[in-house]
Nucleic acid binder design. Structure first.
Lengths: 188, 188
DNA sequence: AATTATTTTGAATGATCGTTCAAGAATGTG
DNA sequence: CACATTCTTGAACGATCATTCAAAATAATT
């Protein structure tokens, strides 16, 4: 009974890069074949279909995202400072030359019209992220205010994910964040 | 010299609907043929290519968007009230069953990786919308504050365009807007 | 009515799409 | 080492993709 000879994690990571950059429709299985070096048969045996591979890529990305958020918020001196750090990281993301927004956000927009699992999954993970913020905020604020501010943060994050494509957007985004999230401890 | 027998505006409007909903890659020229009733040859004579038709659809959509914004802001009692009305309309957009975000935002995200005219056009129109807000705000605030608040508004609009896909998002978005744009005159 | 300029038609093109499958290679088990 | 099981290979499939074009139809001009 032969075991798979390729590294599944590597294949998923390469698929994340491909799908994240080009989206679902504009990524072809032949590009996957080329970028992973696997033959079609191996991919289909391991992941079932293009949708199956995309789902696994998206799930992995979502898990990484939540981990990233928790790591930053857990190591911050306060929830507010952690959120500032996180938002600044999102701003920095957009200054990379290969910036391509957020895989979950892009999937949410691209696949809304067809509905289905992938769109619902993206939606559910984004809501989970908001719930995560809310959970952290409740350490310092009451339930109502935490919920409201968590939503406000999500609106800003989504905003950054779109606004980040403008050239020279970083400084404007920082100003916009300070204007809209003035309750955060933005250091001087 | 025969004149075109179809209504160009109608064809463009139908193309806006198609491309807006499914995006560039997931829309096929065969769908355009079916939804417009035109034959391939006529479409290619009139618009040159899929990209040409998409560009004209996107340009028309962008023009309509700016007109919509100006109409609402011009007929408001104050700039602030006009912006509130506009944001509420964006919230209401998201409650439609066939909601599909903003055509410019979707194009910006989908076509960023390929670059090119279409992505740059989407980008330029979104920046033009921000400049428009800035122009209106300068009636009531100084240049610096106007710029900052225009960016903050854009971040919130982009946020709405993504957040709107969540079921039951309308009320949460309203709360989030009041939290992030507290300087606006949100009636009681 | 004849001529000219333009548009419409719709089948056809080659390319690429996601996917399959029979055959061969590789590995674990007895 | 033989057997059973699983994985890999890569050519091939039918479907669909954006696009083309020669021929027919239409409308403006003479």
């Amino acid at each position: 009974m032969a075991k798979a000879q390729f590294d599944r994690n590597k294949v998923v990571d390469q698929s994340i890069a491909l799908f994240w950059q080009h989206g679902y429709s504009a990524s072809s299985m032949q590009q996957v074949v080329k970028s992973t070096g696997l033959k079609p048969g191996s991919i289909y045996l391991a992941f079932g279909s293009k949708e199956g591979l995309f789902r696994e890529a998206l799930e992995t990305y979502a898990q990484n995202s939540i981990t990233r958020i928790r790591t930053i918020l857990d190591s911050a001196a306060s929830v507010g400072e952690g959120i500032c750090t996180l938002l600044e990281k999102f701003v920095e993301d957009s200054t990379r030359t290969d910036y391509c927004s957020c895989f979950l956000v892009k999937t949410q927009l691209e696949l809304a019209s067809v509905g289905g699992e992938l769109h619902e999954f993206a939606s559910s993970r984004l809501l989970a992220i908001e719930a995560e913020f809310c959970r952290y905020l409740e350490r310092e604020y009451d339930a109502t205010l935490s919920k409201q501010r968590a939503t406000s943060i999500m609106l800003h994050i989504f905003g950054l994910r779109v606004y980040g494509y403008h050239p020279g957007a970083a400084q404007r985004m920082r100003d916009g964040l300070r204007a809209g999230l003035s309750w955060l401890p933005w250091g001087e």
